[in-house]
């Protein structure tokens, strides 16, 4: 994400571009319960690096909007907060996914076809 060869301006534009899809990325991995750190790791493993300072507050916000539900649970050694998609969240994820495919096709057409 922080490629030194691209200019600061490009970086801030890239950030803006990613901002919209971070929500989609996070929601996509929450069919199963996850706690913050495990979600971050899983996203990273699959090539989507999200700054922790962005991801964790985002989860709370998504919960406030009823897309996620969460609860504290003690497993192994200490309490962790687990997040999972709510019913509303599932529905919205579906809609967002459709919108994403449409958008991706459109942009691909614009960028790569004459």
């Amino acid at each position: 994400m922080t490629d030194p060869t691209i200019s600061e301006q490009t970086q801030s534009l890239v950030q803006e571009l990613r901002r919209g899809v971070i929500i989609l990325a996070a929601l996509s991995q929450l069919h199963e319960e996850q706690y913050g750190y495990s979600l971050m790791k899983q996203l990273e493993d699959r090539g989507m690096q999200i700054d922790q300072g962005t991801l964790y507050p985002l989860l709370r916000r998504l919960e406030e909007q009823n897309l996620l539900q969460s609860d504290w649970r003690v497993d192994s050694s200490r309490p962790r907060r687990y997040y999972v998609l709510s019913e509303t969240g599932k529905k919205i994820l579906e809609e967002l996914t459709e919108e994403w495919s449409r958008l991706k096709n459109t942009i691909d057409n614009l960028l790569f076809e004459d």
């Binding site: 706690y35 913050g36 750190y37 495990s38 922790q52 964790y56 709370r60 200490r78 962790r80």
Partner: peptide, 15 residues
């Protein structure tokens, strides 16, 4: 939410 947020950050940092 202050307490709750702090506990969550603590748990994340511990991870």
């Amino acid at each position: 939410n202050r307490v709750d947020i702090i506990e969550e950050i603590r748990s994340l940092l511990m991870d």
